[in-house]
Write a protein that binds this DNA or RNA. Structure first.
Lengths: 279, 279
DNA sequence: GTCCAAATGTCTAGAATCAGACCATTGAAG
DNA sequence: CTTCAATGGTCTGATTCTAGACATTTGGAC
């Protein structure tokens, strides 16, 4: 602790649970909404006048990198892109990026080595879930937020699957989808979640729409902590395998409705699983 | 041009067209994707290592407010919330917000009055579209980006409709949906777009998921400039009315598949209309 | 007519962020 | 063993953004 850098004397890589100011009230049904529905002001203000930024650049960067690590986008043993390039891609200055990396390093997610062939290597494996993890994770995000995340994910992934099933897919892309499906089924237990994520993200990415791909990734990572907190059980895996197969089949068949339905069923199952562990 | 303020000597409320560096290649099909599909690195990096922020706070704020105005969330003659409150909701400092408001004022979107009952009043009506507007709007965003936006919107709105049709709706919410539908049908031509937007946004908002509502708003505003650039024609309105009715009916019926299909058809129509004007 | 509340307008000090130049370390190639 | 290229490490000055105090304007209530 000799030469403390300019800022962030105690950076918090796991951003403290937000104040969550008001006590939550399940899905408030804004009763005034109906009044001026026909022609008055739109209620849209709620969605448009929301915060422009989620936090300062440092916090958002830590969050992003942590997501990339937890989702397995950069797997254990791999390294992040060089600082200069990464800073560029993230649209932030190198200084800020380095602060974020340092925070993740101190939190034990990264191992930074210098010199040629150096870099920021990921040293992190999803921990075996322990009892109480789920409760703790839920406390951090709140019930409303969970419902929000689940609903969001349902909509976005169903939509993506539907779109993908409508698209004329190149052989390349068909292969990718099949490979990802096989990947999940072949996965060792320790790697299951990562492969599962890969399959789900593929649906978004194969549409060729960066916006949609980003939305799918966003939707998924909002439930990562929760899902990481429940054990991967045999029967669930088998159940999921059937559903995954149905999703892939519907997409490859070019049947949008079936694709949407299959995804909905699958995610409904996941949501039920989560709720089950909470009850 | 006498007393130039501290910063932003020439704030650009309509952000200059991004460099769009490389010549566009329609939906690049990344042929390397298949290789490591099964177990290697996810391609997800594309979505996760994207820019953390879209610009500086000032630019993003201008953009947001402009969207709120163009989407009609704050209609002509209404005023924005007080600066302090708005700055709070947007999560930025009052100084930054004021700069954004000033820029919009100088660009002729807002009329700011002080004193009690003062505020920033919207003085803007969507201009009558003129020939060439569409081309110009498209030049600003690029073809890839247009396809991206259309795909994104398709997925998100279909998903939202599906979710909404699955939900048990309160009478209140059913009424809101019906009212918005009626609103579009009753609209004077000048107000048509605003009411149309209101109907579409309602689908997202009624799900009760802020994330989903925001995604729907985001999806819609990415095509606002384009849609504002094509005239509102009688036959199209009638066609849209039928489709709107089908969407609402499917949702109120609780038929997710029909809802998804109806939205897909409607948006396909809109997309075709756009492409038609471009061909 | 006076007062007051609600709004915009102004200022300042300090923190966060940036761009870019330069230094230090490392491991491979020659 | 020397050299070199790729990488992380450090520093600095300028810019942007923030928080909060304080000033001014306005129109209604009494």
């Amino acid at each position: 602790m000799d030469s403390t850098p300019a800022r962030a004397p105690a950076p918090r890589p796991a951003p403290e649970p937000r104040p969550a100011s008001a006590p939550r009230a399940a899905v408030r049904q804004d009763s005034k909404a109906g009044d001026r529905a026909a022609d008055g002001a739109l209620t849209g203000g709620v969605s448009l006048l929301r915060p422009v930024r989620a936090g300062n650049a440092f916090e958002e960067t830590v969050e992003r990198l942590l997501q990339a690590i937890k989702l397995g986008v950069v797997a254990h043993g791999e390294k992040l892109p060089p600082e200069r390039e990464l800073a560029n891609r993230l649209g932030i200055s190198r200084v800020t990026l380095r602060e974020a990396i340092r925070a993740l390093q101190e939190a034990g997610y990264l191992d930074v080595r210098r010199g040629r062939y150096g870099g920021a290597f990921v040293v992190y494996r999803p921990p075996r879930p322990r009892k109480g993890d789920l409760r703790r994770a839920l406390t951090r995000m709140g019930e409303d937020e969970l419902e929000d995340a689940l609903t969001f994910r349902m909509a976005v992934e169903c939509g993506a699957a539907r779109v993908l099933a409508t698209t004329e897919l190149t052989p390349d892309r068909r292969e990718t989808l099949k490979a990802r499906l096989a990947g999940v089924n072949d996965a060792a237990p320790a790697d299951y979640r990562r492969r599962d994520i890969a399959f789900h993200l593929a649906i978004g990415e194969l549409t060729g729409s960066p916006l949609l791909a980003a939305a799918c990734a966003d939707a998924r990572l909002r439930v990562t902590d929760l899902l990481d907190a429940i054990p991967v059980l045999g029967p669930n895996i088998e159940h999921a395998a059937v559903q995954h197969a149905a999703i892939a089949a519907a997409i490859l068949d070019g049947d949008p409705e079936a694709a949407g339905r299959a995804v909905a069923e699958h995610l409904e199952g996941t949501a039920a699983l989560l709720r089950g562990f909470l009850a």
